[in-house]
């Protein structure tokens, strides 16, 4: 049933923090397997949008349907179906890489095999027994990717996934969280050009309001820079 409905369906979505509107009247539809790139300067509401889509923040107005689940009412239906890669790796620093991953694997009903598979995929098999607090930022991000993918999510929410990665890691993770993953993806990026290449649809936010919502082919440089102009 849910495959017949789009992956994302937002109607006049709004969210405030206290008195300040961080998302205003956002309407868009994203089909399964497509990639939405969210662009905008710092504080434009990119991360807030991702948090709303993940069910971590309740929308204040409008409607949001994510993977067929109406937010915030059916938030529970989303649990375990979203892969989240944000600024924080969401890993316990005192536990080892494999302890963290097998903790998440078991929550998803998966075993050691899945952990090994993902460790291999992100190139961290050699560091499985290293405590997370000893990892570099780039390695943390690799483990965070493994953590996010362990439950085979249907929707990937990527908040500047490449911010901490060196080019080698970027290449290694590309098949997992890049276009080739064939997952439905929502990503934010500081690099508009790279985001345009990846996206099927581009959303430009400024002060939480959508200034831009169209396929990347029709977007020219001027309108992109209007997003970032002071």
């Amino acid at each position: 049933m849910e495959s017949s409905s789009p992956a994302l369906e937002l109607r006049a979505l709004g969210r405030r923090f206290g008195e300040r509107a961080v998302l205003r009247s956002l309407t868009l539809t994203l089909e399964h397997g497509q990639t939405l790139a969210v662009l905008g300067s710092n504080g434009a509401g990119k991360t807030t949008l991702l948090r709303v889509l993940a069910g971590l923040l309740a929308p204040h107005s409008g409607r949001a349907r994510v993977l067929g689940a109406e937010l915030p009412r059916e938030r529970e239906l989303l649990r375990g179906r979203i892969g989240w890669i944000g600024h924080e790796p969401l890993l316990y620093r005192a536990l080892t890489v494999s302890e963290n991953l097998s903790f998440h694997a078991r929550l998803h009903g998966q075993g050691r095999r899945r952990v090994a598979e993902l460790l291999e995929a992100v190139g961290m098999s050699a560091r499985a027994k290293t405590p997370v607090r000893e990892l570099s930022r780039g390695m943390l991000q690799r483990v965070a990717v493994a953590r996010a993918l362990i439950g085979s999510p249907q929707l990937l929410l990527l908040d500047e996934p490449e911010a901490n990665l060196d080019p080698g890691a970027r290449e290694a993770l590309e098949p997992l969280i890049g276009r080739d993953s064939r997952c439905t993806r929502v990503l934010t990026s500081h690099d508009p050009q790279a985001a345009l290449e990846e996206a099927d649809l581009v959303l430009g936010l400024r002060d939480g309001a959508p200034l831009l919502l169209e396929p990347p082919a029709s977007i020219d440089r001027d309108r992109l820079s209007a997003l970032y102009s002071p």
Binding site: L107, H108, G109, E117, E120, A121, S125, L149
Partner: peptide
């Protein structure tokens, strides 16, 4: 050899396990 199978293809396969 369990790991030598191309892991990337299987990473995004639908979950086989059932949530506990």
């Amino acid at each position: 050899n369990a790991l030598s199978a191309p892991p990337r293809a299987s990473v995004h396969q639908p979950a086989s396990g059932r949530p506990p």
